[in-house]
Design a binder for these strands. Structure first.
Lengths: 195, 195
DNA sequence: GATCATATTATCACCAGGTACTAATCCAGT
DNA sequence: ACTGGATTAGTACCTGGTGATAATATGATC
């Protein structure tokens, strides 16, 4: 039950802790010593602040980063289909939704990396083919405009050639953000019927 | 001169150092303590070995990983590049290696999903462009043959148009498994010149 | 002004995971 | 028997902390 006295004009502690959090946020490699010089408080105060804010020490921070970037599974969450398929009419059409999150963008610009957009479209193009095995044979892509953090990509796939037409299917995928077309891809997908 | 005798019980130095390097390679988070127990030599020997092999201490290794995944300065944010870039001549060419693992294949067939192959090529195509921001504008892909579990994909990128030619660069990426060409992509990459 | 709570600073002991250096020991080959 | 590389041992020291305890500062409240 810690009560904060509100009569004070400047709340050095709160404010300082915010600054501290921000400093560490955008340079996680700062030692407490650097932070204490930066914020003009003793190193002990820095440590108390970290404790209160639940910010681990330098080495732990670094280790966490390293582990995240190392993690062989997380490196691209592409095990399965990228995006949530919300409609699928085999050999006809399909729709999937994929929201751009932090891990999909260039951190400096907030623009989605092309391969995630491709991955959604490719996953859908393969999924829409009603066959035992479906593999992308070739593709022709146009990234119409850059896609940014938190945008929801809606990919629509249309099969342009039926199942009777041999071992190849043509699938067109168009990805929208809202009304806007942001990506277009023409896929040729190999299919190997039954056995 | 010195004759090579191979009647020794313990592993020769050379071999142990290879093992050491391999152990650290595939688990960089190992302390010297763990390594000495693993290799059955004293911790001092481990340290001498690391010294000779030029392998930094645990904390340095971790820090390097974190920095690589963080790096706010460089024009290529490596932290989600697919494949290991082993050679890079900006605006000219680049080579990356990517090994197909369990998580990259269709589990039923052991064949790599197309978007991983694309991701490697796309990452390389973007990385090879020496610019503040580089984004894929369009691409034309051919998946020449299916790529299977554990195959090592070597992608080679060649920039086909120089930096003086406006805001678009053409990059050709060819991916090989051994001598065999397995994928080819023509990328058009937008570049937004720094200044 | 005296008192109380909170905030801040100061010390001290300790820890992991090392480096750097010196010295001892093993072990084989000539 | 002596030599030299490889190995092991031991010590001092380093960074960047944790954890506990105590002293001091700064107000707010009675």
């Amino acid at each position: 039950m810690i009560k904060v006295v509100r009569a004070i004009e400047r709340l050095p502690k709160r404010e300082r802790q915010q600054q501290l959090a921000r400093l560490i946020e955008d340079n996680p490699f700062m030692t407490d010593r650097e932070l204490n010089r930066r914020l003009k408080v003793s190193i002990q105060t820095i440590r108390l602040d970290r404790l209160e804010l639940g910010i681990p020490e330098l080495r732990e921070r670094i280790k966490l980063m390293a582990e995240r970037s190392y993690d062989p599974v997380r490196s691209l969450p592409m095990h399965e289909i990228i995006g949530d398929i919300i409609d699928l009419q085999l050999d006809k059409s399909g729709i999937s939704i994929f929201e751009i999150r932090e891990e999909h963008v260039f951190s400096r610009t907030g623009i989605a990396r092309g391969h995630h957009i491709f991955a959604q479209a490719n996953s859908l193009a393969v999924a829409v083919i009603d066959d035992e095995i479906a593999l992308t044979a070739s593709a022709d892509l146009r990234f119409i405009r850059s896609i940014k953090l938190h945008e929801k990509c809606i990919a629509k796939a249309y099969v342009r050639s039926g199942p009777g037409e041999g071992s190849k299917a043509k699938v067109e995928v168009i990805t929208y953000v809202g009304e806007e077309m942001v990506f277009q891809g023409h896929f040729v997908v190999f299919r190997s019927k039954g056995e």
